[in-house]
């Protein structure tokens, strides 16, 4: 069983604050973490390896510092890690990102199972993983709860709004993991020590000779972020005094009735 997991390094969005004067995100001092759903994806990969044998490769596209996330993946039990990094990859939207990652997967493969997260908590689109499958022309199942391998097929539980589908698919398959898929393991001390010594190879544009350069980076991205802003909070909340709870409740319903809300 040859498995590859796509992991993204993201800022911990719970730690992000807004600069009240400039109205921009303060990224400084915000810790970088492995995207939480990608930990679930990695856990699923490790469990598949334990059950069916094989090896787990992790890949991440990003700057040099994303190696910290790859080391974390290694310390959890991944066998090999590659950093996908090149100036020309910068500014890629999900179309371009998924194209580059698909090319990397082709180069490193073949793989039986490709795993990713349901979504990244920064870009938040949830589009990259299924798009990788489309570039590769393979089957995909998003939001999976479990994966069972039977020969050259797999049986997957997939969560949709209405319930859980049991789906059969031929390998290779790309699946995305969610918080409900499993509980990611912690790294062992030994794993952490080993990961510090592990070599992480860089994959750059030069390593992908058959890539179509018109489809990568900012230039190759069909979407463009035109502007960003922080949500404006209307501060026109009418505060109701607490005289006593009943009186306040009466006041509230009175106001709602006057405004024809209730």
């Amino acid at each position: 069983m040859n498995i590859v997991v796509c992991v993204k390094q993201v800022p911990d969005t719970t730690e992000i604050r807004i600069d009240p004067v400039k109205n921009t995100l303060i990224r400084q001092g915000v810790p970088s973490i492995m995207n939480p759903f990608d930990k679930n994806a990695l856990e699923e990969a490790l469990q598949l390896k334990e059950q069916y044998g094989g090896a787990v490769t992790v890949i991440s596209m990003g700057p040099e510092q994303a190696k910290a996330t790859l080391r974390e993946a290694l310390s959890m039990g991944a066998d090999k890690a590659y950093l996908v990094t090149d100036r020309s990859f910068g500014g890629s939207d999900t179309y371009a990102t998924s194209y580059i990652l698909a090319k990397v997967i082709e180069k490193l493969g073949p793989f039986d199972v490709i795993l990713g997260g349901k979504q990244a908590i920064d870009g938040d689109t949830g589009q990259t993983a299924p798009s990788i499958a489309e570039h590769l022309g393979i089957a995909r199942l998003t939001h999976v709860l479990s994966i069972k391998i039977e020969g050259n097929k797999c049986i997957v539980e997939r969560e949709i709004e209405e319930g859980v589908e049991i789906v059969e698919a031929k390998l290779p398959i790309l699946c995305t993991a969610t918080k409900e898929t499993n509980k990611p393991r912690y790294a062992t001390i030994k794993g952490k020590i080993d990961s510090l010594k592990a070599e992480i190879e860089n994959i750059t544009l030069a390593d992908l000779p058959d890539i179509d350069v018109t489809k990568i980076g900012l230039k190759g991205s069909p979407t463009r972020v035109k502007s960003t802003f922080t949500p404006k909070r209307q501060s026109c909340c009418e505060m109701l005094e607490i005289i006593n709870p009943r009186e306040t409740a009466r006041m509230l319903f009175g106001k709602l009735a006057d405004a024809k809300i209730l």
Binding site: P11, T14, P222
Partner: peptide, 19 residues
């Protein structure tokens, strides 16, 4: 003009697909 939240709702972006 597609307007959407990112970074867990901390930031909003206006996105175009013009080409």
């Amino acid at each position: 003009v597609w307007e959407r939240p990112a970074f867990g709702g901390n930031l909003y972006a206006r996105i175009l697909c013009s080409e």
